[in-house]
């Protein structure tokens, strides 16, 4: 494995574009455009095709990061972006009304991909909401019969994003070992 493709998904505003910008060694590729619906209250722009960034691990492995659009109407992009992917990061925005339902939504939509890969869940915007607890996230994952690492992250911080990526890669290595 000398090149690894990872996908980052999650609700609009969870921080997919921010995470990739925080960690990419090259200027990230963005496809953000003006928001014209309710989301405009939260954000001026939203991703409509993909984000792309790259980084190199200590052992020289290249990691390509692809961020998806968050909104369900861009579901066709989810299917395109996961092709050839090795792992998935799901970002869950805790400031939204029902973060656990959001998690379910992405687990369900990416079920086929998840079936073949590793997943890490990043719980974001913790400064704005301390709930649900990590235990509740783990319980929800158990209901799916899977155990994935769950981290509280501030995606604006490179180290936090790095932590999720390392965790994801180690679960992949474990799976293929």
């Amino acid at each position: 494995m000398s090149e690894i493709k990872l996908i980052i998904t999650g609700t609009p505003g969870a921080g997919k574009t921010t995470a990739i910008a925080a960690i990419s060694e090259t200027p990230p590729v963005r496809t953000d455009t003006a928001t014209t619906d309710d989301l405009a209250e939260v954000k001026d722009v939203t991703t409509v095709a993909m984000d792309f960034g790259e980084l190199t691990l200590d052992d020289g492995q290249k990691v390509f990061l692809y961020g998806t659009p968050g909104q369900q109407r861009f579901e066709f992009m989810w299917k395109i972006l996961v092709q050839g992917g090795l792992g998935l990061i799901i970002l869950v925005d805790c400031s939204r009304p029902d973060p656990l339902a959001d998690l379910d939504m992405y687990l369900e939509n990416f079920a086929d991909f998840i079936h073949q890969t590793g997943v890490v869940v990043g719980v974001t915007r913790r400064d704005q909401s301390a709930t649900p607890s990590l235990d509740e996230f783990y319980e929800r994952l158990e209901a799916w019969g899977r155990v994935f690492p769950v981290f509280e992250v501030d995606v604006r911080q490179k180290d936090d994003v790095s932590l999720m990526i390392s965790a994801l890669i180690s679960t992949l290595e474990f799976a293929t070992a």
Binding site: T31, D32, T33, V48, A49, P69, R73, F74, F76, M77
Partner: peptide, 8 residues
Amino acid sequence: AMFSSVLA
């Protein structure tokens, strides 16, 4: 949705 993606 697709047109916004291709244009972007």
